[in-house]
């Protein structure tokens, strides 16, 4: 039962562990770059989650071949989550870009990227 739960839904477990790793890094790490990496892992885990919920066993890419008359839904992967993730990736990349720019600004100002050092400097 438990094994079935773990193996049968392995995609969820993977995404959850990735997400927790990312979450941990975002909250607990003192270095801002590490926080950012954590954020990236966090976002990626969500992308994986979406991708995995769209896939089906033994199904193919959702392109209808010529000459096929009747379309059976279970033969094709659900394309919608994938499409959504394309957009989400764009969003995430831009977040990443803005974040890097911010880090650059912070580094120029304080000459460090350690959170506690910055807080000390600002006090």
């Amino acid at each position: 039962m438990t094994i079935e739960l773990i193996i049968g839904k392995y995609n969820y477990w993977i995404y959850i562990s990735l997400m927790m790793i990312g979450f941990y890094a975002m909250i607990a790490k003192k270095n801002l770059v590490k926080k950012l990496i954590g954020m990236n892992i966090f976002q990626t885990s969500i992308i994986l989650f979406f991708i995995s919920i769209g896939s089906k066993k033994g199904a193919t890419i959702p392109i209808v071949e010529e000459g096929v008359k009747t379309i059976q839904a279970n033969q094709y992967i659900n394309p919608l989550p994938h499409v959504l993730m394309l957009t989400a990736i764009v969003v995430m990349v831009s977040t990443f870009g803005v974040a890097l720019a911010l880090l650059l600004l912070i580094y120029r100002k304080y000459h460090t990227l350690e959170e506690d050092e910055i807080l000390n400097l600002r006090r």
């Binding site: 801002l32 919920i53 974040a99 880090l103």
Partner: peptide
């Protein structure tokens, strides 16, 4: 002075918020 750092913090929180929202969308889907 403190703006970029404050903004970075905001971004970390904001991204968590947005990602949670996205997960909600996923589960609902």
């Amino acid at each position: 002075e403190g703006a970029p750092f404050a903004s970075f913090n905001y971004m970390i929180y904001g991204t968590i918020g947005a990602c949670f929202y996205l997960l909600g969308v996923g589960y609902l889907y």
